[in-house]
């Protein structure tokens, strides 16, 4: 077990994918916050699937950090139409001047389809794709199911996965042991996919005792009550 410095993600552009509810948005907000120590970061809310809980919600919590959140002007409104914010092109172009970009993609292959629109811009730069998974989500509750979703996302989005991130949790009820129990799941998914496990996230007070890297993350998601 070693505490992971997430800033070691070297790519200029990080694409964050996963099953919906895996924790992509929260991981993206944490990654953006950490990377902002190194350069200006654009966090792109590229979720065309989820109507309520999205990266835009983290905007306030990221105040004071060198992070610009870009979201569709229709995000969190009543406009129920998938749309892409035009500012993302400018953000992707700014990579050449030293900025970093984190793209929070919508869930599953349906969310990943919209990556096609910016595929070439991403591919032209140093980029990496992170697949976030949560073993406590019912439709990715086996390594095989999680691999299936990953392959669907890869084929819809046009990018191979560079790293796995284990974000297994059961919300506020998560105990350290709950995370530790998913270590075998993560190893099996890594073996099945041939993709290395970057780190295991935790919000519990103390770190899960597992081999490999662990990453303490903050909760940036919207609270209703």
């Amino acid at each position: 077990m070693a505490e992971f410095d997430i800033r070691r993600i070297l790519a200029d552009i990080t694409v964050v994918t996963g099953h919906f509810g895996a924790g992509k948005t929260n991981f993206s907000a944490n990654l953006s916050s950490a990377l902002s120590d190194l350069s200006h970061v654009y966090l792109i809310d590229y979720d065309n699937v989820n109507p309520y809980f999205r990266a835009l919600d983290a905007k306030k919590a990221l105040n004071g950090k060198d992070v610009t959140v870009i979201a569709s002007e229709f995000a969190n409104t009543n406009v129920d139409i998938p749309s892409v914010p035009p500012e993302i092109i400018g953000a992707l172009n700014s990579v050449s001047s030293g900025d970093r970009v984190v793209i929070d993609v919508g869930g599953d292959m349906l969310g990943a389809v919209s990556l096609g629109y910016i595929h070439d811009k991403i591919a032209a730069n140093a980029h990496g794709t992170v697949y976030v998974f949560n073993a406590y989500r019912p439709l990715t509750s086996t390594p095989e199911e999680a691999l299936g979703v990953m392959r669907e996302i890869e084929s819809a989005g046009g990018f191979k996965t560079s790293y796995l991130v284990n974000n297994s949790n059961i919300g506020a009820a998560t105990e350290k042991e709950d995370i530790e129990k998913t270590a075998d799941f993560a190893d099996k998914l890594s073996a099945l996919s041939g993709v290395p496990l970057l780190c295991t996230c935790y919000m519990t007070e103390s770190a899960p005792e597992i081999s490999g890297n662990v990453l303490k993350i903050k909760n940036y998601t919207k609270r209703l009550f």
Partner: peptide
Amino acid sequence: MSKVLIKGNEA
């Protein structure tokens, strides 16, 4: 699968 993290709709 006993305890899971799940959306209301999925539940």
